[in-house]
């Protein structure tokens, strides 16, 4: 194969990687601050894809879905699940938190089944993003570029908030010590809600970004949570930089592996996880005690 095709594959892998990043950054942010692993994050993603389908169908406008769904996701879905469910298990053992999030996963899957049935749906590619750019022999679809741009902008925005604002330093302080943050006069449980809302909004953003290039179907949530969880482990739990790097590694390796080792494409991700865990059990950017 010529080098141009490899570059095209690389770009496609990168755009896939950015979806993983959007999901993993929400998951890792929530874990870093709340110390809860929200396995329902994958189900949130699936729900977002179905909602995106319906919104595009009724409004005929992808932009509406793109801007509204992450917000509604964050404030409604994130706000409600945190306030009514997760808040009750912060002091419980990890296994309880895990069971709760798995329970939420099942509930969402059934809600999707009741509302949309069992057949797959896909959101058509919006008119503006159809087609591709050609540069010499390299072809890049417009939508892939759009996703990469949007995700990198999101990553920059997250760093700016975390490292340049007061609320960012409060969030980082919470990952270091809840008690000490409280004694600085900060209402930590409000910070928890805010972080959960932000993390869930990121899941919503991942859904709308992925919707035009994926097919919504039951079971996609389990597949996705495994990938995203691997990304978080590779990058180091709690680290946004780690999520970005982990997602890039998995997305790109996956894309490049398909033409070379098609039989192993699915396994490679787990091989990467195993190798990283062997040499850096805390992940590439993880602190041994999981702090952002």
């Amino acid at each position: 194969m010529s080098g141009d095709i490899w570059i095209s594959l690389l770009i496609a892998g990168l755009s896939r990687a950015m979806i993983y990043f959007l999901l993993a950054s929400g998951l890792t942010l929530i874990f870093g601050v709340l110390k809860v692993i929200n396995f329902a994050h994958g189900a949130f993603y699936m729900l977002g894809i179905f909602i995106c389908y319906s919104v595009v169908k009724f409004t005929g406008n992808f932009a509406v879905a793109f801007f509204i769904i992450p917000l509604v996701f964050g404030f409604v879905l994130g706000g409600l699940t945190e306030t009514f469910l997760f808040r009750r298990v912060y002091k419980a053992e990890h296994v309880m938190q895990l069971l709760l999030s798995i329970g939420v996963t099942y509930i969402i899957a059934d809600v999707v089944k009741i509302i949309w049935g069992v057949s797959p749906y896909s959101v058509g590619m919006p008119e503006v993003f159809r087609g591709f750019f050609s540069l010499g022999g390299i072809t890049i679809t417009k939508y892939n570029l759009f996703i990469i741009a949007i995700s990198l902008a999101t990553a920059l925005a997250m760093f700016a908030v975390l490292y340049r604002t007061k609320i960012g330093s409060i969030i980082r302080a919470c990952t270091y010590s809840r008690e000490m943050t409280m004694t600085a006069g900060v209402n930590v449980s409000r910070v928890f809600t805010l972080v959960f809302v932000a993390g869930t909004a990121l899941a919503g953003l991942a859904s709308v970004a992925a919707a035009p290039m994926t097919t919504g179907m039951l079971g996609m949530d389990n597949e996705m949570i495994m990938i995203v969880f691997s990304v978080v482990i590779i990058g180091g739990a709690g680290s946004i930089t780690g999520a970005l790097l982990g997602a890039t590694i998995i997305g790109v390796v996956e894309a490049l592996a398909v033409p070379v080792l098609p039989e192993f494409a699915e396994v490679i991700m787990y091989v990467i996880v195993a190798v990283v865990l062997l040499f850096r059990p805390q992940g590439l950017f993880g602190k041994s005690e999981a702090r952002v």
Binding site: R172, A173, T175, Y176, S177, E179, M180, R291, V292
Partner: peptide
């Protein structure tokens, strides 16, 4: 100002 957890090391 506690002795066991004095400062936010990551700030």
């Amino acid at each position: 100002a506690f002795s066991d957890n004095r400062i936010f090391g990551n700030l």
